[in-house]
Design a protein around this nucleic acid. Structure first.
Length: 111
DNA sequence: AACAGGCGGCGTCATTCTTT
DNA sequence: AAAGAATGACGCCGCCTGTT
């Protein structure tokens, strides 16, 4: 167990988060263009563009939180499975011991 | 001290699943 | 069918540890 504290707030608090340092054609620009102009080549009016940006920000924020929650749940699930494995291994051990003892008794009786 | 490799966590995008 | 939530995959970062 080499798990140390989780001070990984850096990406969230740093000046320029890693996710904003992507290749020019991916992410932000693309999504805005896609969402803003489904069929036409014209850019939307300013208020419309603002709304699109705002919607995108809300969506990203929700997804960010959803991802965090999803990871938390997954971790918990794995922990549960590990616990279960431990319990079953113990049970198995006990049963093997029990079987051994019974066999012993049975053998001595047979003699 | 400098470097490399592994690990855990993050944000985002794309896709799938669920709800309305 | 559309909208929203959940999840897998990817690339990035910071930390830790072992090696040179």
């Amino acid at each position: 167990m080499a798990v140390t504290g989780d001070e990984t707030e850096s990406a969230a608090t740093g000046d320029i988060p890693a996710y904003q340092l992507r290749s020019p054609n991916s992410g932000l620009t693309q999504s805005i263009v896609m969402a803003a102009s489904p069929g036409s080549m014209q850019s939307p009016p300013p208020h419309r563009a603002e709304e699109v940006t705002r919607k995108r920000e809300v969506r990203l924020m929700k997804n960010r939180e959803a991802a965090r929650e999803c990871r938390r749940k997954k971790k918990e699930y794995v922990k549960c499975l590990e616990n279960r494995v431990a319990v079953l291994e113990n049970q198995n051990k006990t049963l093997i011991e029990e079987l051994k003892a019974l066999k012993d008794i049975y053998c001595h009786k047979a003699e």
